[in-house]
Amino acid sequence: MADILTQGTHREKFYRPSSPHDLSCKETITTEESPVKVERKPVICRSDDVERGGLKLTIRMTTQTQPKPKVKGKRRKAQNADAKPKLPKASSRSKSTKTHSKDQSKSCQSHLMTDFFPVRRSNRMTAAMMKKEKQSSLEEAILQKREEGLEVVEFVGKGRGVVACKPFRRGDFVVEYAGDLVDLKTARNRETEYNKNPDIGCYMYYFRCGNQTYCVDATAESGRLGRLLNHSRHGNCATKPVVIADRPYLILVAKQDIEEGEELLYDYGDRSAESLRAHPWLNL
């Protein structure tokens, strides 16, 4: 019911210039009449204005001696066959606003679009909606294992790396750091295992999500690109955990705007003396 009333006032905003008729309907709104009838009212005068067009408008102006609502009512009668049986009532019409609005609306008025389709208050999105939409598109990208705009390139001296072949905006999803998601304990065990073989690179990425530490183990060659990004302390990407259906995923997002052709780099985050000794490039 509140909705109907707001619709009414909204329309009034548009049609205020249409004068006494409208004023009278404002009065009815203040009384405790059924809001449905009240709601029809502004429609009548409005569609009347529209329907009759400019020509009738001038006629109305020449017949200024008569009160406007009455003129409108009569004209409507004359033109509308449906209204014929009610003609005798016409004289009393302008005196009683309530019956006026009621049987006019029933004789020849159309329903309103807004009776059927809800008004979206705005087609602009609220911040919350935008956040939600962003989240869902992110989830979609992760679940579809999207790896668009990336290219693997062989670099002299540091092996494979990934280069952007489309521009990324700051904050854009770049790629998932995909691999086995394992808990801390398993990860430690695996790492000791891997350390025995010097040919195996570092593909374990530890991260905290919520208040638990996880590790993505991407040691196994998988064809996914996330594991191939090289390290830089001043890289253009950053890791970010995202939770989808209670499972954390580790993704890389653009830390700044990235141009086409730039190598994608992020900070592996390993600062331990031991690692630095083993892999001096971590200082870069």
Partner: peptide, 10 residues
């Protein structure tokens, strides 16, 4: 889209 006319029930 066109809303139907209001039925003449009176």
């Amino acid at each position: 889209y066109l809303a139907p006319k209001i039925e003449d029930e009176a």
